[in-house]
Nucleic acid binder design. Structure first.
Lengths: 220, 220
DNA sequence: GCTATAAATTAGATAAGACTAAATAAAACC
DNA sequence: GGTTTTATTTAGTCTTATCTAATTTATAGC
């Protein structure tokens, strides 16, 4: 069925999946090119190849979408990645800043067997420390239908932070100082054009949209 | 200093190191070719490249020897490999037959940091379950000067098995049935042209040279 | 010392995936 | 709607590591 993909191909598929999550449109070559740190011409080449393998839908000057087959590959790689990150951090005592790079290399080479052992050791987690979902062994994403970015909540809604979608160390550090960390309870005070006003443990902040859009909240 | 080698290059260096251990001569292209499952022509190409990098001494129609620099690379890869095998088996519950293949892929991608964490978890082991030496963090091999293959011991010498240098499952299984496993005490009864005669827990066997040469004994 | 065989090397081809430079298409601006 | 800017694609090059086929060197037999 899957005649063994190269690491590069897996990287492209994973990246397309991650970029697709943000909007709903096909992912542009430039977008991929910037995130994978390759030139746009290289992206075009690869998209043609992936298209022939029926892993992406691609038409010139249009962009790329994953096919179901491509999505499954992406989910598999993503599962590897997030399980590895979690394993490195929880079991081997790595700092969360260190794990990404290591997982980036390991995700392509671990066997299904090792993946299973790692998942088992971790108690089959559904989310990683940033709240990012970990696809299950049969490649289903956990049900996160009651989680939304801060920017999409209504005034008055309450909940707790369940996901923070930035890897930027300084941003994370800043959020930490503001007690805007995973599990933190908060309430939406206002949705304004220049940000989201929230209340956290007595404090109130006006979070710039840029930041607010990266904080996901589980409502209740 | 070392401008990052490819996985292939690392494989060649590791294999040359392992093949060098057996005899003392330069390793032939054919030998490498068979063990890496590539064609001799490919070996010649690679040896030229490694030679330019000063990782092997290579002269046409002569063979290859590792330089000190090449040996260090090989030791590093070997350390990764054996630590990984041990980790997979001891910590993650893999069977010893399963670990080799997995380690073969992982050995090239783990960071120094992960290597260190793994070594720490394992208590900085000096030998793997087969008795194969694990180079230390500063790439020294443990002192195994009092270990010899059965074939090199004198009649009357006693000791215990400290290394078995075959990966063949059926051979290992056979040795296991004969109680010829790691730590087993034995005595050399005779060195004969068709094998080594040994005594193990009451039993006596005449071990064919082929087999005897793979069993290493720590004398006392 | 010549010949047969085995081993090693050279030369040239291929595949993957990156690149640069040039050409083309689409989008954005008045 | 034409023009400029931006994005994308095409065409061709490079590197790495394989391969096959042909040639050359070394080794063994007699």
């Amino acid at each position: 069925m899957t005649p063994k993909l190269t690491e590069s191909q897996e990287d492209y598929l994973k990246k397309i999946f991650l970029l697709s999550e943000k909007h709903d449109n096909p992912v542009s070559a430039l977008d991929i090119s910037e995130h994978l740190k390759v030139k746009p011409a290289s992206v075009t080449n690869m998209l043609k190849k992936l298209s022939e393998l029926n892993l992406v839908d691609y038409k010139p000057y249009y962009g790329a979408r994953l096919t179901r087959a491509g999505e499954l590959v992406a989910l598999e790689v993503l599962r590897h990645h997030r399980l590895l990150e979690l394993y490195l951090s929880e079991i081997l005592g790595f700092g969360w800043e260190e794990v990404h790079e290591e997982a980036e290399k390991l995700e392509h080479v671990i066997s299904e067997r090792l993946e299973a052992k790692i998942a088992e050791k971790l108690g089959h987690p559904t989310h990683d420390p940033h709240g990012d979902p970990i696809p299950s062994a049969d490649l289903e994403l956990p049900d996160d239908s009651h989680r939304y970015p801060l920017t999409r909540l209504k005034v008055g809604q309450k909940g707790f932070i369940s996901r923070v979608t930035t890897q930027d160390t300084d941003s994370l550090n800043m959020l930490s100082r503001l007690n805007l960390t995973l599990k933190a309870q908060l309430e939406i005070i206002g949705q304004e054009r220049n940000g989201v006003r929230v209340e956290v443990e007595q404090d109130r902040f006006l979070l710039p949209l840029e930041l607010a859009s990266k904080i996901w909240v589980e409502t209740h």
